[in-house]
């Protein structure tokens, strides 16, 4: 217990959090106004996003600066590790709500709608089964198939996980060009994935008649894949920042948690996709 005591870095007072709060107030009130037809809505909404971007740039910029300035000791590094892990867990729980909804609809509520009084009195002839747009949505649609773009996307995301790990190996063995190349390829694969997702959405809307309002199938399909796509976008932005930092000469072979956090996040997004591929597309 007599080892030298490492002073934990406590930041100075900061102006950034209040900008974040103002941003979310503008964002939330703007969205509420927009959805209810107020002209000021979009203005407040996009202003909120702009303030949020400013805040994120400033705040993370300061964190990077402090990190490169050597202010974070081993203990702070451990704090970052714990917090990133639990943050990802909270994201898992967010997705769990939507996976839960899909499970509930497929296993419980749709079969219940096709039995008993509901089918006899309310919606005669509703057969249940999956995929379905529900008993009262007669508009026919074609469901998504797994083999095609989704399978290709699975391959792309899995490869991006591999290239990211390759980049990490480069960083750990101080092969900076391997780090940069690996990151670049990972980001490009992420962008390719997103482009294919957008193409798939357009295809679904234009040719499959599969839309957000296509009953419970459309709801779960678009919200699950949509939120996943948003997370891929965020992950790609994180990796892009890491690429920028790598180009600027940041990170050392044994201290680079910023990179690792982004990598953890990327792998998490990867795992969510695998689940999605199985339960949304394949089953």
């Amino acid at each position: 217990m007599t080892q030298t005591f490492e002073k934990y870095f406590v930041p100075e007072p900061s102006k950034y959090p209040i900008f974040g709060s103002i941003a979310l107030l503008l964002f939330g009130s703007g969205a509420a106004m927009w959805l209810n037809g107020f002209k000021a809505g979009p203005w407040a909404f996009f202003l909120g996003i702009a303030v949020l971007v400013f805040m994120l740039f400033g705040w993370f910029g300061q964190v990077v600066h402090e990190s490169e300035g050597g202010k974070y000791g081993r203990k702070v590094d451990r704090s970052f590790r714990w917090s990133m892990g639990w943050f990802i867990f909270s994201e898992v729980m967010f997705f769990a709500a939507f996976f839960g909804a899909l499970f509930y609809a497929r296993v419980l509520s749709v079969p219940w709608l096709a039995t008993g009084d509901t089918v006899e009195l309310l919606w005669q002839g509703f057969a249940g089964g999956w995929p379905t747009a529900g008993p009262d949505k007669p508009d026919p649609f074609t469901p998504m198939t797994a083999w095609g773009i989704p399978a290709l996307n699975t391959l792309i995301l899995l490869s991006s996980g591999a290239t990211l790990t390759w980049a990490h190996h480069g960083l750990r063995h101080d092969k900076r060009s391997q780090l940069k190349l690996g990151l670049l390829v990972t980001i490009l694969l992420g962008v390719l994935f997103l482009s294919l997702q957008i193409y798939e959405y357009r295809h679904a809307y234009a040719e499959l008649n599969l839309r957000l309002d296509t009953g419970i199938y459309g709801s779960t399909f678009y919200l699950l894949t949509g939120f996943h796509g948003m997370h891929v976008t965020v992950g790609a932005i994180m990796l892009t920042v890491m690429l920028g930092r790598a180009l600027a000469g940041h990170f050392t072979p044994d201290s680079h948690f910023g990179f690792e956090a982004a990598a953890w996040y990327w792998h998490f997004v990867d795992v969510v996709w695998l689940l999605l591929f199985v339960v949304v597309y394949l089953l």
Partner: peptide, 16 residues
């Protein structure tokens, strides 16, 4: 946005 999570008509369920 027209989703049907909690609408039985679209195959969802308010109980969910």
């Amino acid at each position: 946005f027209g989703t049907s999570f909690f609408s039985a008509a679209g195959g969802g369920d308010p109980v969910m």
